[in-house]
């Protein structure tokens, strides 16, 4: 489903080019889950951004379901993000001017894939049904992250990319959100690539990879 071959990426800095990824190879099968770990600055978020088509590699190939993401135009990458991917951010990035219900269905509507039954089920399973008419600012941090997960899954994506989805939450909320996320991912049948610092969180996923100084270390078995 997701294939990344020999990915290289460097950023220009006043001190010269800073290499972030140095020949990364990664593959993720449909319905599988993978935790991407590593220290701060190891290139995890960059790799996630490349997988989401938010950025392009300097060299190497990325393909999603056989479609070459690395060679696609910006509108084509946007189209793939809209229809095939779900994104969950550490900072939630909800739309403050839309209600909970409208936030949840936003991406599905953008992709023209809204299914009211599934949206309703998501609202209920996320524990947000009673708050459908509220606005994000009226929710707690945990509720906001659950809403962000719902938004990412409402369009039934093939791949969910999550960047530290529990990083902003307290332990109890983080546990609840993670459990819910994994349940929903499993039920919807999509693949999951999650960036995390937490070994505890990573241990809940099928595979675990560690990035260090722009290179992937050997995969750790669960």
């Amino acid at each position: 489903m997701l294939e990344m071959r020999d990915i290289r990426k460097a950023y220009a800095t006043p001190q010269g080019p800073l290499s972030v990824l140095e020949g990364v190879d990664l593959s993720l099968a449909a319905g599988a889950s993978l935790a991407l770990m590593g220290e701060s600055g190891s290139g995890k978020s960059t790799l996630l951004h490349l997988a989401a088509g938010l950025d392009t590699p300097d060299s190497g190939e990325i393909s999603l379901d056989g479609q070459r993401l690395s060679a696609a135009s910006e509108p084509a990458r946007a189209g793939l993000r809209r229809t095939r991917l779900g994104l969950v951010f550490q900072q939630f990035h909800l739309v403050p001017s839309l209600s909970v219900a409208d936030n949840l269905t936003l991406q599905a509507r953008l992709a023209g894939r809204e299914t009211p039954d599934w949206s309703g089920e998501l609202l209920t399973r996320l524990g947000l049904a009673e708050m459908a008419d509220r606005y994000p600012e009226q929710l707690s941090g945990g509720q906001q992250q659950r809403l962000a997960i719902g938004r990412a899954l409402a369009g039934r994506p093939a791949l969910l990319l999550a960047d530290e989805p529990t990083g902003n939450l307290d332990e109890a909320s983080a546990e609840t959100v993670l459990t819910l996320l994994l349940e929903l991912v499993r039920d919807s049948g999509c693949a999951l690539l999650m960036v995390t610092h937490s070994t505890r969180v990573a241990s809940r996923l099928e595979r675990r990879l560690t990035l260090s100084h722009g290179r992937l270390l050997a995969e750790e078995a669960r």
Binding site: E74, A78, Q107, A111
Partner: peptide
């Protein structure tokens, strides 16, 4: 966020 959710920049 809209860009991240797949709305092209030109749109």
């Amino acid at each position: 966020t809209l860009r991240a959710l797949g709305v092209p920049g030109r749109t």
